[in-house]
Amino acid sequence: MGLFDKLTGTQHPPEGVSPVPGQDLREALFGLNRPEVPYVIRYGGGERCDLLAEWRLTEPAWQQVFVRSQISHTVQIRMRLDHKEHEVRALEEQWELSRVGTPTRLQKTSAYTRGPSRTVSRRWTLGRGADGHLEAAETFRFDSAEMREPLRDTVLRSGWTWRGVVFGKL
């Protein structure tokens, strides 16, 4: 792995793993969609990509989780499948969020970054344990890697390269 690959988050599949057909990879990525995960993977269509993974900010059940937890960023990963090279070119984009309206909802602001980055947000509750000592319990955790890592790992297990895009076109 070269320096540029490290900067872009590019990873190659393990030796000896044969690439699956593109349709099989696409189905495996869609297979990551489950009601309990805070992101959704869909066709890219108007987003200038083949597949798009994004946080479920607009879905009522998830929106309240994001608002209550005071999340301040959202992540979107646009993916283009290169069938000839057996690689997924992935552009990770991040926006700051603001809270607007009553009831409060989240809205993207103009603060924008691109390229692999990590946002972690945690909420802790302090209390006394049974023995009277002060204890901390994690009550909420948000980590942008919880979306990127399952996508990347699925691509690598499928024998394709995960190529991070920072500069230029997807």
Rank of each mutant, 00 (worst) to 15 (best):
D5E: 14
L7F: 13
L7P: 04
E15Q: 13
V17K: 09
S18R: 15
P19Q: 05
P19S: 11
V20C: 11
P21F: 01
G22Y: 03
G22F: 06
L25S: 05
R26D: 07
R26Y: 12
A28C: 06
L29C: 10
F30E: 08
G31A: 15
V37E: 05
P38R: 04
Y39F: 15
V40G: 10
Y43I: 06
G45M: 10
L52C: 15
A53G: 10
E54M: 12
E54A: 12
L57H: 00
L57V: 00
E59D: 13
P60A: 08
A61C: 09
R68A: 10
H73A: 01
T74M: 06
Q76L: 13
Q76I: 12
M79F: 11
R80A: 11
L81W: 06
H83Y: 11
K84H: 11
E87M: 12
E87C: 15
V88I: 13
R89V: 02
R89P: 05
L91N: 01
Q94P: 00
Q94E: 08
Q94H: 03
S98D: 12
V100G: 07
T102Q: 13
T104K: 04
T109C: 03
S110C: 00
A111G: 01
A111E: 06
Y112A: 01
Y112H: 12
Y112W: 14
T113H: 09
R114L: 09
S117E: 05
R118K: 10
T119A: 00
R122H: 06
T125I: 08
G127A: 14
G127N: 09
R128F: 05
G129W: 07
D131V: 05
H133D: 11
L134G: 00
L134T: 06
